[in-house]
Amino acid sequence: MKLSDLKIGERGTISFFTDVEMSVKLMEMGCLPGEVVEVERFAPFGDPIAIRVSGYQLCLRKSEASMIIIE
């Protein structure tokens, strides 16, 4: 399942990434495999998404969230 498929308030554990280049940037920001992420809110037009990861709020576009596979 992709992170972009989650609804507000839903959680998942990061399993792997489908894009290498993006994964490096996401990992630096604390989005590591094994980390729990929670969707906090969507921007008014449904994109980007704000997620909570390792204790802080991070925002990313849906297209980027769809590269994060969660379980």
Partner: peptide, 9 residues
């Protein structure tokens, strides 16, 4: 590719 990964303080 354009990307948008940003902390919301």
């Amino acid at each position: 590719k354009s990307y948008f990964i940003m902390e919301l303080p």
